[in-house]
Amino acid sequence: MKSEQNEQALLKGLANNDSKAIETIYKDNFSMVQAFVLNNNGSYDDARDVFQEAMIALYEKAQSESFVLTCQIKTYVYSICRRLWLKKLQQLGRFSNQVDNLDETVPVEEDLEIHEKRNAEFAIMDRAMKSLGEPCKSLLEGYYLKKMGMQELAAEFGYTNADNAKNQKYKCLMRLKKLFFSQYNIGD
């Protein structure tokens, strides 16, 4: 079986968005989650969505510096998926009687609350980005997601120099902020 160190290394890889580590975690856990979802009134797509969401939750958790996983990755992923899927079933009004309680689970409610808050924030930002229109969307994505430099962006988007691109970026950023804060309540 995997040693604790091995699991720690995997989580570190996950936090750094390392595809090798993600692949390993994926291989080790996906079929278990898939079987669970399929046995409980779900489809292959549902299984994939649930598993990927759990992976994101684990990723968010792994990123925080104070992070310590007190159980095996398998147990944690299963617990999250189980929680997520049962919730989804409730929302859809589909019920499953045969949910088996035999597998070991850990309490994940708190983690899921944090995850859901981040999900909501993500959705707001996503909506804001999508309603931004081009070329603003691509320009901001290039800068914030792909971490491209101003010089690169200027070349890619056809601005005469980096300063021009920077100016354009700020204009876009201001529009995005406006869109974002119209949805987002700072007080929350």
């Binding site: 968005n17 595809s19 993600i22 992976m55 924030e121 930002m125 996503d126 997601l145």
Partner: peptide, 26 residues
């Protein structure tokens, strides 16, 4: 606050992309 949101957004976007790629590969 916005910058922090933007960073989170970017990180989540990236991990989603990786997950998608890994899933397709496997």
């Amino acid at each position: 606050l916005f910058q922090h949101q933007m960073e989170d957004y970017a990180a989540t976007q990236n991990i989603k992309h990786t997950l998608h790629v890994v899933h397709a590969k496997l």
